[in-house]
Amino acid sequence: MRAAFASAVNPEEPLSGLTLGELPLVVPDGWVPVDVRAASLNHHDIWSLRGVGLPADRLPMVLGCDAAGLDPDGNAVAVYPVVEDKADPRGYSLFSERHPGTLAERLAAPPGNLVRIPDGVSFAEAACLPTAWLTAYRMLVVRGRLAEAGSVLVQGAGGGVATAAVALAVALGKRVYATSRDPGKRERIGRLGATAVEPGARLPERVDIVIESVGAATFDHSMKCSAPGARIVVCGATAGHRADVDLRRVFAMQLEILGSSMGTPDELAALLDLVAAGTVKPVIDSTFPFADTTAAFTRLAEGDVFGKVVVEF
């Protein structure tokens, strides 16, 4: 089968280890094959090519965490990316860490990882959801308790999770503010229905939820923008993991600082239902045929993306 895989790891030039070629499909006992129709890229794939979480003794490794396709009965399914894994210290792993990933014509997955795609949702749209969009959904709806909120701040919009959080919060009827250093991205954020501002800018109100994936560079701003009882939900630290936290503000404002990561299969199903209902539409930056997967990775690595990069088979 055709696949995009890591044949080598290189911390300095990660894309040098990306190979498009043929690999066999191995289906473990109890798993099933999926015919992949679309997959989307994540920065996790770039980190894998750098060797982060992917040691050389696991190569070659098919890349990719997210996919949508057809199960053995011909049903359209999205692939939930988290696999129970007793060999991993976390108790789980993502596709492409210990098990071959989604950037291949065929994928082996546990049946419980396959979530039916409702009518009206394309394979490309469904392939955007399992990692970035599901992370944003859980941050907002579950950890952030969006139903109790009127306003949301999303730090560093433009990337997959942050852009998804903007689109979801707007679609679910909240007042949304989002920061970006890039004027072009601020313009596109505005077209999604949010108020786009420069990093560190004063907001017209304090917000009930902050979506924080940037880290140390924005965390003080996140604290200052938080209303009493606000939830600051953290899923990453792309610009530093050691933030100064004014504990006086935490207790005086009764703030909650909450960690969040991947959602559940049931939450993925709920997110697919929102897309099927027309409530929200995944933001796709660009789409590439499998033959141009290297160009898709280059697009992601250059950092000028707004939304998801999709590869179609």
Rank of each mutant, 00 (worst) to 15 (best):
N75S: 15
A76S: 14
A76K: 15
V77K: 12
A78E: 11
V79E: 13
Y80A: 07
P81Y: 13
E84K: 11
D85G: 01
K86G: 12
D88C: 13
D88R: 12
P89V: 09
R90V: 02
G91K: 02
G91M: 04
G91H: 08
Y92F: 15
Y92H: 15
S93L: 11
L94C: 08
L94N: 11
S96L: 06
S96A: 15
E97V: 07
R98A: 01
H99C: 09
H99W: 14
P100F: 03
A108D: 02
A108M: 02
A109M: 13
P110E: 06
P110Q: 06
P110H: 13
N113E: 08
L114Q: 01
R116I: 10
R116L: 15
G120V: 11
G120T: 12
V121Q: 04
V121S: 09
A127C: 02
A127V: 05
A127L: 00
P130I: 13
T131H: 11
A132T: 12
W133P: 06
L134H: 08
A136L: 05
L140W: 01
L140K: 02
G144I: 03
R145I: 00
A147E: 05
E148D: 15
G150I: 02
G150C: 03
S151C: 08
V154I: 05
V154M: 02
V154H: 02
